[in-house]
Design a protein around this nucleic acid. Sequence first.
DNA 1: ACTACATATGAACAAGTGTTCATATGAGGT
DNA 2: ACCTCATATGAACACTTGTTCATATGTAGT
Lengths: 116, 116
Amino acid sequence: MKADGCKELVTHPKVIEEAINDLLSNEEYDYMSMLFKMVSDSTRLKIINALFDRELCVCDLMAVTQMSQSAISHQLSKLKQTRLVKSEKRGKNVFYSLSDDHVRQIFKQAQEHARE
Amino acid sequence: MKADGCKELVTHPKVIEEAINDLLSNEEYDYMSMLFKMVSDSTRLKIINALFDRELCVCDLMAVTQMSQSAISHQLSKLKQTRLVKSEKRGKNVFYSLSDDHVRQIFKQAQEHARE
DNA sequence: ACTACATATGAACAAGTGTTCATATGAGGT
DNA sequence: ACCTCATATGAACACTTGTTCATATGTAGT
């Protein structure tokens, strides 16, 4: 948490000021951090990918991702808390789907980068 | 690691097959996971934001982000290992900059989502 | 060579995260 | 009411991650 930088003549006081002006608010960093954390786990990435074009229930997701029911349920819970997915109960099943296009966009963009 | 899902008649065998066909390779998930992990820490987000339009040396980044020299150096090291930033040594200083537009795009997109 | 400054790096530690296991909730059919 | 299936949830545990502290490396100037 040291405030200052170089002791030698600060070579770039102007540039530093610019950069400081560009700073975002803590809320923005926190939100972005949260959003990226959600999509930085490969189990959740698989879930998001599976839900990309359709809604699925938990047992469908088990079949698709080859993960345990508990693991999936825990991850879906996080994804729902952070509003990346929404759910709808129908009979014995709970169907999950992506809640908006934000996730889809971020996911697609990263996927394109992965192809290189 | 259970393979199957519901024991009751699998209501959506067709949809499940679709979802399975949409699966990506493990390498893709791993890469995306790694990329998102890198931008999911708020210290690194601050660094990336600071480097968005300019190159900066470590001491500049200390001044801008208000973080310790060691913390910044460690994070820069990770960002460099994963090729998100590149560095150039000039005299006593080491100047860091974003290595390509991938990061910028992902960052911007998330930032827009944060504004809502 | 010596000193001051800029950066890197290793070890240690606290905090966070994902999985499993066991169990709870809740709906449908009988 | 009872039983079964689908899903949720809490506790425990191993693992990862970010920071600090101490120290090393390396460059420039004297």
